[in-house]
Design a protein around this nucleic acid. Structure first.
Lengths: 119, 119
DNA sequence: TCATATACTGATAAATTTATCAGTATAGCC
DNA sequence: GGCTATACTGATAAATTTATCAGTATATGA
């Protein structure tokens, strides 16, 4: 595994929250599970821009962080389903706010040269 | 400068928002400017955990993204001040929600072995 | 003249995150 | 036996972000 060298900074609530739901794909996963449990393969289909490997990694983090949980069916071939925990559902309002802000303010950057937008 | 190879993913509003306020220090900067303009040196003092270089980089991004703006006084030694734009102030509710969620749910992880929390 | 204070920028290294690709395990079916 | 489908994991490369450290410019005042 990967051994962290610089301790995570969580001095403020938002830094902490960002550790849980930040990164490139986590919110996508949470959002995809809104309407009910999904099997891994369904999750991959729901987020086609991400590789399966990354989704698996992020699933693991979300499991560790108790945002999602898993049902494993004792079948062959294996079958499992991921679903949101109570804690996971509690981030819906955050996602919605972030999403609304983004959709609303996307237009602000539309008339700008991309060179001037990027970091 | 740095030339991006993988295009930024902003397929959803929240991905877009995350590009604007995500990363390790941007929200800290926005938050620090809540109570009024600050000079760079004051900003550094307000966020002692970050290096000045990083703050400067993030300032640049926030300027590009029209979240903050700058007043430059024609003085010597130079004097400038950063302040939030209208757009910048519009993210307060987001920050507050993220912060509240973090403070509220921090405790969830307190009884857990750190090994099981990290990614 | 020379050091000072201030607001930056450049170059590069280190750390972290994400992507790529290949491999494991197993019951059931042909 | 060999193939399939499924849910993963490992190793490593590539990309990106953050950190480290040094340097620029300039009016002012000692």
């Amino acid at each position: 595994m990967h051994q962290r060298k610089i301790p995570l900074y969580a001095g403020c609530g938002y830094s902490f929250t960002m550790q849980i739901i930040g990164g490139k794909w986590k919110i996508c996963i949470i959002d995809a599970l809104r309407d009910g449990p999904l099997r891994p393969s369904e999750l991959f289909k729901a987020i086609p821009d991400a590789t399966e490997r990354v989704i698996n990694q992020k699933i693991k983090e979300l499991l560790n962080h108790k945002i999602i949980n898993r049902t494993i069916y004792a079948q062959q071939p294996p079958r499992s389903e991921y679903f949101l925990t109570e804690l996971g559902r509690s981030v819906f309002p955050l996602i919605d706010s972030l999403d609304d802000w983004g959709e609303k303010n996307r237009a602000v950057y539309e008339d700008v040269n991309p060179e001037n937008i990027s970091r």
